[in-house]
């Protein structure tokens, strides 16, 4: 039994399918997505916008249910938000009327618990935000705000960290900095991470595996291994291997969009028989 547990995936996504019922009809957002994620693994998800990445992540987080299929966390179905899962949203998503400290306390307020001061201080120090607790979010740069969001997400010591295009709004230098920070934190905590990103570079630098989603309906089209030891340096980004992988993934995303566009064109303009 212990043996089974030790090899058990941290997260299992089994045939995840979600249909949105909209005013203009049903929309199949993700279709039979399946993947097992090992404890301590970092998996990135890339794909054209609208390919259902956020839909998949929200299902994993328990923020919404699936039409069919299931999500298992440590072998148990996820039916709602779980404290083992930390979430970092697109843009920092801080509450602008609260100070940084109050933003970090927010989850504890909701749960009616005392914040773990020592851990939060450690985190704030780790991300270089000590002394900023009394500031308001608007006084912080985008990168700093996203650091606060990271601290907030890690404040419960989650075993899974979900991130939805967390650094999409940052300039490339700040983004690189944040990538290193995530790796450092990962090396400290060995948290399982699922990261949605539109930066193939970021995906490759951070992950053990990169998942490529296809455009609507969102399906897992390809999964690539990224076999580099950690800590990684930016040097690896200039290797032949990474170069090829980047191009492959780019082709997969762009090719998918082009072929779908071609189908749409064919459907839109019926081919008239040449006379």
């Amino acid at each position: 039994m212990t043996l089974v547990q030790s090899t058990q995936p941290k997260l299992q996504v089994n045939g995840a399918t979600k249909v949105y019922n909209t005013n203009s009809g049903d929309l199949l957002a993700i279709d039979r997505c399946s993947i097992d994620i090992a404890p301590g693994e970092i998996v990135s998800v890339v794909g054209p916008s609208g390919s259902g990445k956020t839909t998949l992540l929200w299902a994993i987080s328990g923020l919404h249910g699936l039409t069919s299929g299931e999500i298992l966390l440590d072998g148990k179905p996820v039916t709602g938000p779980r404290r083992e899962i930390g979430m970092v949203f697109q843009d920092a998503n801080l509450l602008p009327w609260r100070t940084i400290d109050a933003n970090i306390n927010f989850p504890f307020e909701i749960k009616g618990e005392k914040p773990d001061r020592d851990w939060i201080t450690t985190l704030m120090h780790r991300v270089g935000l000590e002394g900023f607790g009394a500031r308001m979010p608007r006084e912080l740069s985008g990168g700093m705000q996203q650091r606060v969001a990271l601290v907030r997400a890690l404040s419960f010591k989650p075993s899974v960290l979900l991130m939805d295009e967390p650094f999409g709004a940052l300039d490339s230098f700040t983004r690189e900095e944040m990538n290193h920070l995530v790796e450092e934190i990962y090396l400290d905590t060995r948290t399982t991470i699922v990261l949605i990103t539109h930066s193939i570079e970021e995906a490759i630098f951070l992950s053990d595996r990169v998942v490529v989603m296809s455009a609507r309906p969102g399906r897992i089209a390809h999964v690539h291994d990224v076999p580099f030891a950690r800590p990684r340096s930016m040097e690896i980004m200039t290797t032949r291997e990474v170069f090829d992988l980047t191009n492959t993934i780019k082709r997969e995303i762009v090719g998918d969009q082009q072929s779908k566009a071609a189908v749409r064109r064919r459907q839109a303009v019926p081919v008239s028989a040449p006379l």
């Binding site: 709602g80 899962i85 843009d91 927010f106």
Partner: peptide, 23 residues
Amino acid sequence: GKIALARSYGASTLQIFWKIRAP
């Protein structure tokens, strides 16, 4: 997004009202 944030920590409807909607 802010409601999703609150819900991800298991906030009740009442908590969402007082801590997100009202402010």
